[in-house]
């Protein structure tokens, strides 16, 4: 993170692919669908006549109730939303630069998930690659905009610089928490251009 012309950190530490995976702690059996076809897939394969309507119950062609399993939004999902955002200075994701970390995503959900009026709170703490990073505010803004766009309206988003990771964290945090300043910043076409560029990988 740094200014566009003179890089604050020209040679940032980049996490390897295995380190990124570790944040998801993929163990055997957890993500079986991603594996190549093995014995399990052969045994679980739909029968060859799955398309045959004469073998389905009369006047109903509805799958088993796939909504029966609730998949509430969790920290991993929120992390996955912001991980691909690209750094404005390097063509690298915030995840690979270590700016966002799974353990720094905090979510407080209401006890009753079925209540649409109940609010959830999300706190994301960012770790700039250098303590004097001049683009910390832009990145924080990017994360905030991304979450506000991608989470339901009932989620309140707070983005902060992690303690002791930036020389001006208080000032940056103040800016990121100030709704009016954020709204005013989003009126700025240049800034919006930068934010859109940062969020391009999120559309893949």
């Amino acid at each position: 993170m740094g200014s566009a012309k003179e890089l604050d950190n020209a040679n940032p530490t980049i996490l390897s692919a295995s380190e990124l995976q570790s944040q998801r702690q993929r163990r055997k059996g957890r993500d079986a669908s991603a594996k190549e076809e093995g014995i399990r897939e052969i045994l679980m394969a739909k029968p060859s006549y799955a398309l045959d309507p004469f073998y389905l119950s009369e006047y109903s062609d509805t799958d088993s109730d796939d909504d029966s399993t609730l998949e509430p939004i969790d920290e991993q999902e929120i992390y996955d939303l912001i991980a691909p955002i690209s750094d404005p200075e390097h063509p690298l994701s915030l995840e690979s630069l270590g700016v966002v970390k799974l353990q720094d995503v905090h979510l407080i959900s209401p006890p009753d998930l079925a209540n649409p009026a109940a609010l959830s709170r999300v706190l994301v703490e960012l770790t700039p690659t250098v303590t004097h990073c001049s683009l910390a505010t832009v990145i924080g803004l990017g994360v905030r905009v991304r979450l506000e766009q991608a989470l339901p309206p009932s989620y309140r988003v707070e983005v902060k610089i992690k303690k002791d990771t930036h020389s001006q964290s208080e000032e940056v945090n103040k800016q990121l928490a100030d709704k009016e300043r954020v709204a005013a910043a989003l009126e700025n076409a240049n800034l919006m251009g930068i934010l859109r560029k940062m969020m391009e990988p999120c559309q893949d």
Partner: peptide
């Protein structure tokens, strides 16, 4: 915004992309 709160993660993921 309604779809972003869907019970299914697959639906939410599509909604997130769509929203962008």
């Amino acid at each position: 915004d309604t779809a972003l709160a869907d019970v299914s993660m697959e639906v939410r993921t599509q909604a997130q992309k769509c929203k962008m």
